[in-house]
């Protein structure tokens, strides 16, 4: 199927960029990257890290004009240890261990044994959450590109309410020019018919819907609706979020791509 199609270069915005350059007049951009269990977006995240640190995206856009200003990058993960992205980025020619502008905050290891201990009251859990984000924010020096991976795990495992988590994410967004929130929750889990605010499904649904209302760009990796194919991995949908980007000249290049990742990790994109 993909053999007859022309390979495409990935861009997210109409200025042919993946992460647009920042200026003082710009409003901050919030992007949501969501994935399904069968189609992990780790390859895309690795590319975004590469683009933010080096301005390039060698694997998915060889014609990309490099960014003039390289941004410091902060990666907060509730899902992976730092080695995971170090290995992935090495494939893209980025050695995260040697780059000073890259900071990895591992909230995955010992999350429920050290950062947010179990068996505490709701108020105490909220305190732990605030102090955890305080520590992260305290380490930020300049305006970085921030990635937050799998924050919704806090809603299903603790008493934290969606609004409290959003408040913490908003604090991060204010300090950053571009923020990407990586969601791993399957869309089938979202249920708006629930009314019990303590139900974890309600909390996740509430959090995701409120987060989408704050987003400027939504990126979704999903498997093919027609089933598995040997020469295609899934579809990559890029759409505009409800929030408007300032300056208004910058728009999201809404497109649907088909993509294929081979076993060596090379990615090919085709227009749908």
């Amino acid at each position: 199927m993909s053999s007859g199609r022309q390979q495409q270069q990935l861009v997210f915005f109409n200025d042919h960029s993946i992460i647009p350059e920042t200026s003082d007049e710009d409003s901050s951009i919030v992007g949501i990257i969501s994935e399904s269990p069968g189609t992990s977006a780790a390859w895309l995240v690795a590319t975004l890290i590469e683009n933010s640190l080096q301005g390039s995206a060698n694997h998915i856009n060889s014609e990309l004009s490099k960014r003039r200003i390289k941004s410091p990058t902060l990666f907060i993960s509730f899902k992976h240890v730092g080695d995971f992205y170090k290995k992935l980025c090495k494939r893209n020619g980025v050695d995260l261990a040697t780059i000073k502008d890259f900071q990895y905050v591992d909230l995955f290891t010992d999350l429920f044994t050290k950062h947010i201990p179990s068996g505490t009251t709701t108020a105490a859990t909220n305190k732990h959450l605030t102090s955890m984000f305080d520590n992260v924010i305290g380490g930020i020096k300049s305006t970085p590109v921030i990635f937050v991976e799998y924050p919704e795990i806090l809603l299903t495992t603790t008493d934290i309410s969606p609004n409290e988590l959003l408040v913490q994410l908003d604090r991060l967004c204010k300090l950053s020019s571009r923020t990407f929130v990586l969601l791993s929750t399957d869309r089938t889990l979202i249920d708006f018919s629930l009314t019990d605010s303590s139900d974890p499904v309600f909390k996740v649904s509430d959090f995701i819907s409120k987060l989408y209302h704050r987003s400027n760009i939504n990126i979704y990796c999903q498997p093919l609706a027609t089933g598995r194919a040997n020469d295609l991995t899934g579809t990559l949908c890029i759409s505009r979020g409800p929030n408007v980007i300032e300056p208004r000249t910058l728009n999201v290049a809404s497109r649907d791509y088909l993509y294929h990742i081979n076993r060596d990790g090379n990615v090919k994109l085709y227009l749908r």
């Binding site: 069968g38 992990s40 598995r228 991995t233 899934g234 990742i261 076993r263 990790g265």
Partner: peptide, 17 residues
Amino acid sequence: VIKVPVLSERGAMMVRM
């Protein structure tokens, strides 16, 4: 097969229904 260790995490399509 829904997920294969390591390969699915990297983004390869490993679903075999």
